[in-house]
């Protein structure tokens, strides 16, 4: 294992697949709940987290997690009380945290910051420590998701049924928001601010055609995400294209295949299950 991870390409593969396995299941909830723009906003807020972590010279993952979780929780609060429409609030927070992050980066004259790296990630620069953070953080997130699965899914279908029938949908929602912040924090340096939402949403969208239950969709989404990472990384190696965007393009290709008649063969195979 240690020998395997000596190679930067292997490290990128292992890290990317780890992120995809966590992003797939959480991405399904983002798609089911129509939270795509919400995910975008939190990931943009992560840029502010990166800037602040450089400013106070602290762990990027930790600061990004705290800032993302803070923005996500304030979104939940603001949406309950504000007179502005939800999408305007999201757009406001999304772009103001992005701008704020860039302004803070501008102030930090003593560090040379690779803006492209922050926006699009640098999966080929993944270290063994990064891999450890991804797998420990990712495993924690998946275990937490398994624990809140039933109330979270019930609240996704209908919050009022969940609440009336004795579940605690609000607690599940808050934990879910923390899990999204966690995924963004562990993948920010690998995938980047602008592309992490794609890793959450595109594999989930592609998995829909092949799934006949939410549990199936979550697993298939993780698999499609992993396939996109592997395909994208080999593609970027072959054609010398930027790796993050190539992974997203590979995910897009999976989604297009799921829409095409080609997918019918796979869908039909699954139909007579019991």
């Amino acid at each position: 294992m240690a020998g395997l991870l000596d190679d930067f390409f292997m490290r990128a593969l292992v890290a990317g697949v780890g992120i995809a396995i966590v992003a797939g299941p959480l991405g399904c909830f983002i798609v089911w709940r129509r939270l795509a723009f919400f995910g975008d906003t939190i990931s943009h807020a992560a840029l502010l987290g990166v800037a602040l972590s450089l400013l106070i010279n602290s762990s990027t993952t930790l600061v990004v997690f705290l800032v993302s979780a803070f923005v996500a929780l304030s979104l939940l609060l603001i949406q309950k009380r504000t007179i502005l429409p939800a999408d305007s609030v999201l757009s406001l927070l999304s772009h103001s945290t992005l701008a704020l992050g860039l302004v803070v980066l501008g102030f930090i004259s003593w560090v040379r910051v690779d803006i492209m790296g922050v926006l699009f990630g640098d999966i080929l620069a993944t270290s063994v420590t990064d891999i450890l953070i991804i797998y420990i953080g990712g495993l924690t997130a998946l275990i937490a998701l398994a624990i809140i699965w039933r109330p979270l899914f019930a609240a996704t279908v209908d919050r009022e049924i969940a609440k009336a029938e004795g579940m605690n949908p609000d607690r599940a929602n808050i934990i879910f928001v923390f899990l999204i912040a966690c995924v963004i924090a562990i993948s920010i340096e690998i995938i980047g601010v602008l592309l992490i939402t794609a890793m959450l949403i595109i594999p989930a969208a592609a998995a829909r055609r092949f799934s006949s239950s939410p549990e199936q969709m979550v697993v298939i989404s993780g698999l499609i995400g992993s396939a996109s990472v592997i395909g994208g990384l080999f593609g970027s190696l072959t054609w010398d294209t930027p790796s993050g965007p190539t992974i997203v393009v590979a995910a897009l290709a999976c989604f297009l295949v799921s829409l095409s008649p080609l997918a019918n063969i796979l869908v039909l195979k699954k139909a007579p299950h019991s």
């Binding site: 129509r34 039933r150 049924i161």
Partner: peptide, 15 residues
């Protein structure tokens, strides 16, 4: 939502 794959059987086990 269309995005939610949910059969009647699975819906029975919702809560």
């Amino acid at each position: 939502d269309w995005s939610l794959p949910l059969t009647v059987d699975r819906f029975m086990k919702l809560t």
